[in-house]
């Protein structure tokens, strides 16, 4: 990923875009992890059982808790790496959109049933 240190002149106070790009990509990754776990739980009884963190809610508890932890962890790492930098945002945001689109597809039951 092309990154560069921020070029901010003293007369302006434009924040580098890295922090925003990190949040966007992390949201895409978090959504995708949630969708993949939901898909895996639907296809495998063993995975489904392992995702039962809270019995009354069933596998949904593990799917969402794991996805949220991965999302927040990824966000933290990306923020640490990119937070103070200006990033070539186009490609990263495109990846986030693709991940979000795939997430929507993977949670749609007729699509899940194709596999």
């Amino acid at each position: 990923m092309n990154t560069s240190e921020t070029a901010v002149s003293p007369s302006t106070s434009i924040l580098p875009n890295g922090s925003g790009v990190a949040a966007i990509l992390a949201a895409g990754i978090g959504s995708f992890v949630l969708a993949v776990l939901a898909f895996a739980g639907d296809k495998s009884v063993a995975v489904k059982s392992s995702l039962v963190f809270y019995k009354p809610t069933g596998a949904l508890s593990g799917v969402t808790t794991t996805a949220i932890l991965v999302w927040l962890f990824t966000w933290g790492i990306l923020e640490w790496r990119w937070g103070k930098k200006t990033i070539a945002a186009g490609r990263v945001i495109a990846v986030a959109f693709v991940l979000l689109g795939l997430s929507l597809l993977l949670t749609f039951p007729p699509v899940v049933d194709l596999f």
């Binding site: 978090g30 959504s31 949630l34 969708a35 949904l60 996805a67």
Partner: peptide, 12 residues
């Protein structure tokens, strides 16, 4: 499952 995309996206 799809409902969870709402808080993740809006938090970002």
């Amino acid at each position: 499952h799809v409902a969870w995309f709402a808080p993740i996206s809006i938090t970002m």
